[in-house]
Design a protein around this nucleic acid. Structure first.
Lengths: 264, 264
DNA sequence: ACAATAGTGTCTCTGAGACAATATTGT
DNA sequence: ACAATATTGTCTCAGAGACACTATTGT
């Protein structure tokens, strides 16, 4: 960024940041992972008012003047999952983190006008979280529920809306970005990858066609040479191992089935 | 949003919003339009420090406690373009406005830590803007330059980065959303629509294939029955008029040509 | 008259999806 | 032995792109 011109020094010295009606900025994280074949979201039980004792997305105030938004999101994720140690650092380094959107309705927080920058995190199966400083508890919860029941868990503030937006985003993103591998360990099989897509999309995919299609996308996955130690849960040959390839864009994309509805 | 529980009233009364290091929230708008077959962006010349006299994206501080982010973006766009009147309201109502992303590096503004929520606006050819309250001037500038020269105009803060992100977003968005019509008047021809795609993508498109493809996407455009009053600039039959259809998603999408490069 | 342009037709190739077939494994 | 599963093969159809063609218009 260009430095201020010399004749602006005087103006800047007289500038009072506290002269305006205050706005707070928080960073909230929608951390998603796959557990037992279903999509789960990291939630914390609030230890402080407002809404003490209720479930919310992990997050907290931006450290003003100290950190960037991305940094704050990574810090909140590490704090609220209790993953600090050097062993945990490698686990966290494999997490994909991207900005989701910003929410700023004046009445979304009873304390004051709070603008919240929401982040989306895709993680491989992480251990059960330890509650952070301002959380009474932290746990992985199913991100969706069965049809007929509410779409997402009951959350404070507008966090249910943020979670719904996150799910919409991740479903679309898996079509044209190789991010499904972020939900898996370094080595995985094509059926593992299919399980990710089926959990996120909530749709059954044809095993044969999925297999051929994944291998047909250049740079999506690379074979490692090893195979799984055992076949499927109820039999079958041992699947080959793959790792994430260098592609950043899936071309051609893996489109969700049944997208040819009239006009959505 | 759920109301605070009765036992939280006391806590909220004692809450002091000014107790934290202050952060400011601004809303900046990347307003794009098509002028003379080229993509243009709305810029303002700053009338106040910092960076007085230099060009920037239109924007301003969020009115804390009063307005939502979307509202603030629409307000800034109206203020900085000078489009207030009732006739202008209809013009502004056709503008597509969506959130682009949020930028919050601690040193991106010399005054203090400023978190900026950037919005993207697609507009039909609007009149030349009148400078707003805190702008010395406002004008449409070419959004891109010829190859070899800088990609985007020289802007203050991190606005060049924001503009670059906006261009990336709009190029991708035109592939699967019917937003190209937001750059055109209510009635347009297929060649008009093709001009939008060519300006945004910076690529020449095959007229015949483009024509057939647009008509093959259900709900993209609807024929009005009228035709253009004259043919092309140097001859040719009069093109039929169309208006935007009810589709919100292009299926199948209009993909950019040459996307089958090795691994981008 | 001439060149440019709107709109349509045709052909080929790629890729998606339905379905089948085969080999390999867990129970 | 049997059922489940990984992987590959085959067939068909939709759609993208290259190219050609006709009709209509501005200069």
């Amino acid at each position: 960024m260009p430095a201020a011109a010399p004749d602006e020094q005087q103006w800047l010295a007289a500038y009072d940041p506290r002269a305006f009606t205050p706005v707070a900025v928080t960073v909230d994280v929608v951390a998603l992972t796959l557990r037992a074949g279903a999509l789960h979201v990291l939630l914390v039980e609030r230890a402080e008012p407002p809404f003490q004792g209720r479930w919310a997305l992990p997050g907290g105030f931006l450290r003003a003047g100290q950190e960037d938004l991305d940094t704050a999101a990574a810090r909140e994720l590490a704090e609220e999952t209790g993953l600090h140690g050097s062993a945990d650092t490698t686990a966290l380094s494999r997490v994909h983190l991207e900005q989701l959107g910003t929410y700023g309705a004046p009445d979304r927080d009873p304390r004051m006008h709070v603008v919240s920058v929401a982040y989306l995190a895709f993680a491989p199966d992480l251990p059960d979280p330890r509650a952070g400083t301002d959380a009474a508890a932290a746990a992985w919860h199913p991100a969706t529920r069965a049809p007929g029941r509410p779409q997402v868990p009951d959350l404070v503030f507008d966090h249910a809306r943020i979670l719904a937006d996150a799910l919409t985003r991740v479903r679309a993103k898996l079509e044209y970005r190789p991010l499904a591998t972020a939900f898996l360990p370094e080595e995985f099989t094509i059926p593992d990858l299919r399980a990710v897509y089926e959990a996120v999309w909530g749709e059954h995919l044809h095993p044969g066609n999925f297999h051929r299609k994944v291998l047909s996308v250049p740079g999506f996955v690379e074979q490692t040479g090893t195979t799984a130690t055992r076949g499927g849960t109820r039999g079958g040959p041992r699947a080959r191992h793959y790792r994430a390839g260098p592609a950043t864009l899936l071309h051609p994309p893996l489109l969700r089935p049944g997208r040819d509805r009239p006009i959505p």
